[in-house]
């Protein structure tokens, strides 16, 4: 019986461009250069052309892209976090408290909140590093909600009112370019990191942690380092937004910061970071655009989410990548 089957073949240009030295035309150079240049150009130009409302959307898109990338990174090490809000919230509060109460200026405050936030989150999660799978996820889901309640009950850090009057950035361009540059840096740094030997070891922990232990590597120490990296990124996001809004409060621990990054990474394609980036750039503006329609917003938003996941379960990035690198044709095969 004859049957039709789809055949995928690498484009010749793809095969040649795997080795930089064999590029032999301007077109082939473009083929290699366009994918990494596209996000750079997009992000550098957008702040110049967007109206001020959409600049704020760009900022939160970048923030969610960062949260999604750091979530994806942690998944790559075998830790499925449902609590990016923890990292985000801790960073927000450190920035708020140190700027408003201790008077630390923004440019010192941001790096401090980034590193200190990463450390605090790592320490908070150290006791559960041994938990696997869903148990780890549960703890990360609950921790930010717990911190939120503690702040409410104890009335510390402004309690339910939050802290207002925190210094904001000098002008919107500074604001936009800080987050744009950090996002681009994180995108390329994460993509690079996972291909290094260090990154391979982290990934191996997810595949088979016993095998990694058996060669003398302390997987809990490695996992703590991965948490620290993720924690730093999340805390930076929190600290940054605190300075954008001049306010920090309990909403910093809200579930949105845990769930939205996750859906961005899933929709965009996991394990690639570019996927998280694309996912955030689709979902966040989409959610903004739907704001106009009121009550049905969440319904429509969820509908789009399901459509994406059903239509492209591999993720948008993997789909684009395949189309870019391979061509497909129908062939007849004997069955």
């Amino acid at each position: 019986m004859k049957q039709k089957r789809k055949e995928r073949i690498d484009r010749g240009i793809k095969a040649r461009s795997d080795d930089v030295f064999s590029l032999n035309s301007f077109r082939e150079m473009l083929y290699v250069a366009v994918p990494p240049l596209a996000p750079v150009l997009l992000l550098v130009i957008l702040p110049l052309v967007l109206p001020s409302y959409w600049q704020k959307v760009l900022i939160s898109t970048c923030v969610f892209a960062l949260l999604a990338m750091s979530w994806d990174f942690l998944v790559g090490v075998g830790m499925v976090s449902l609590g990016q809000a923890l990292f985000f919230g801790v960073g927000s509060y450190i920035a708020g408290v140190s700027n408003k109460i201790l008077g630390v200026p923004i440019w010192i405050d941001l790096p401090i909140a980034t590193v200190l936030g990463g450390l605090i989150c790592t320490v908070l999660l150290t006791p559960v590093l041994r938990l696997r799978g869903v148990y780890f996820s549960m703890v990360t889901l609950v921790l930010p909600l717990m911190l939120e309640r503690i702040i409410e009950a104890a009335g510390i850090f402004g309690g339910t009112e939050g802290i207002t009057g925190i210094k904001t950035f000098a002008n919107p361009f500074v604001e936009s370019y800080v987050i744009v540059l950090v996002t681009l840096f994180a995108l390329f740094a994460f993509r690079r990191l996972v291909t290094t030997d260090y990154g391979l070891v982290l990934k191996a922990i997810k595949d088979n942690d016993r095998a990694v232990m058996s060669v003398g590597i302390n997987i809990y120490w490695m996992k703590a380092q991965a948490l620290f990296i993720t924690g730093c990124v999340g805390s930076f996001c929190g600290a940054f937004l605190t300075h954008v809004y001049g306010f920090v409060g309990m909403p910093s621990f809200a579930l949105d910061y845990s769930i939205l990054p996750l859906s961005a990474a899933v929709v965009g394609g996991m394990g690639t970071f570019a996927g998280s980036f694309i996912g955030a750039f689709i979902l966040v503006p989409l959610s903004e655009a739907l704001r106009g329609i009121g009550g049905l917003r969440i319904v429509l938003y969820s509908f789009f989410l399901v459509v994406f996941i059903v239509a492209l379960p591999e993720g948008i990035f993997h789909y684009i990548q395949r189309k870019y690198q391979q061509f497909e044709r129908w062939v007849e095969v004997d069955k």
Partner: peptide, 16 residues
Amino acid sequence: FAELPSFKNLIIPLYS
């Protein structure tokens, strides 16, 4: 480590 090429599997012990 199924997705890694064979020789990359040895990176893990070599990183010990």
